[in-house]
Design a protein around this nucleic acid. Structure first.
Lengths: 224, 224
DNA sequence: CGTCTCGTTGAACCCCATCAAAGCCGGTGG
DNA sequence: CCACCGGCTTTGATGGGGTTCAACGAGACG
């Protein structure tokens, strides 16, 4: 999941998935906390998230953690640095993934449609990361959290009456490590948004967006 | 330029450049401050930096700026989001670039070697951005500046007796906007490194790395 | 030599991290 | 069924790293 990147319908992006042109690999399932791969593992597959959510993380020796991305339905994960995975990847919830051979990305493996789809996924990833840069480098805490909620709302929000509801598959620490903040700051910012009636919480993992316009403005830096 | 990503010899990465298999486009030259493209321009070419340096920047409405990357010799720039450039790109110094048709990335355009080289450049870009994330989100100011100097030293450092010399083609504000800091903090950190004899300055744009080990340790967070 | 831009240094402030403690579940076992 | 436990979340108090505002210095260029 990258901020400000709306997903596209999967059947447009992945035509080969539907026509069955390529020898399909069986869908891979993951339990919460289960690793799909770890930093330094040799790459043999890349994956498209079908359902659920994963997190891609990198660690420093002293334990500092940065979440590079959340992999949500439609995202492609596992792009290699040379021949190795460069992040850890673990499931946040029950997750299903469609594996692809690395050769499908590198030379098409006889399926030009799939090849182009994977290439475009890589380009979307580059584009999405660039938005994330601006957020990490130049936005304040409230702007970061507002951006995050808007992006999640666009990706996995569901309509609930006139409002949009977002079910958070990650905890506060994950959000903090994604945004370059601490859990305390994330929590305080949620509380602040709640008190100013921009969001409501239904349990800690469900956010209801009450005023997306205000959140959007804050995310873009147009107000405090 | 991305932190901690060493360039590879250009003739390995771009075999097609040497064999002349593809209909080569003429080299493009840029003066300092001259734009190669702007955010929102339609993509028709992607480019490999041959000499010089460019900066890729994104702006917020209120003027806040984030430098996504410095394009140094060997880097490929201009990867599109759909059909549009997603950053501004302008030259820092006199710069020469090798243009490629977008089709060379998308379908190979009859040159499989070039196709694979551009794809790998895109994957390297993803890998390099992930290092940058850790730096922006989780490193302190001194760690950021140390990381930056080490990365620049690896990419464009020249030997000067027993020391490595780095010629900075960007100014302090560019460095600050790359690292998510202010010019004042960058300047103070340079001074701090100079006082502790880790670097020396020969004019404001030339850094001599006196103690790469210490800098490396600081960059990795192993000391203060 | 004057001017202008960029870089450096200083002082004060503030946002967010840090440290600490209480609250809130969800799960487990008595 | 309920009491207890443990992890996650929230809230509070305090401090510090980096920003902000300001002034000075230093090259570059005419």
């Amino acid at each position: 999941m990258y901020v400000a990147t709306a997903s596209q319908p999967a059947d447009l992006v992945f035509p080969a998935m539907n026509t069955g042109q390529s020898a399909a690999l069986p869908v891979r399932g993951l339990q919460p906390e289960q690793h799909l791969f770890r930093e330094g593992d040799r790459v043999d597959r890349i994956y498209r998230v079908l359902t659920g959510a994963v997190r891609l993380t990198r660690l420093m020796e002293d334990g500092r953690r940065q979440i590079i991305a959340f992999g949500l339905p439609g995202d492609v994960i596992g792009f290699p640095r040379d021949a190795w995975y460069q992040t850890d990847c673990e499931a946040l919830t029950n997750t299903e993934l469609q594996p692809f051979r690395l050769s499908a990305l590198e030379n098409g493996a006889g399926d030009p449609d799939l090849h182009l789809a994977l290439l475009r996924a890589a380009l979307r990833e580059i584009a999405a990361m660039q938005d994330h840069f601006m957020m990490l480098g130049r936005k304040s805490a409230v702007e970061k959290v507002a951006s995050f909620l808007i992006a999640l709302s666009d990706r996995i929000g569901t309509q609930l009456g006139q409002y949009t509801q977002v079910s958070l598959s990650m905890n506060r620490a994950d959000i903090a490590d994604f945004l370059g903040l601490t859990t305390e700051t994330v929590s305080r910012t949620f509380s602040q948004f709640r008190k100013s009636r921009m969001i409501a919480l239904d349990g800690v993992h469900t956010v209801i967006i009450l005023c997306p316009e205000k959140l959007q403005d804050i995310a873009a830096g147009n107000r405090d």
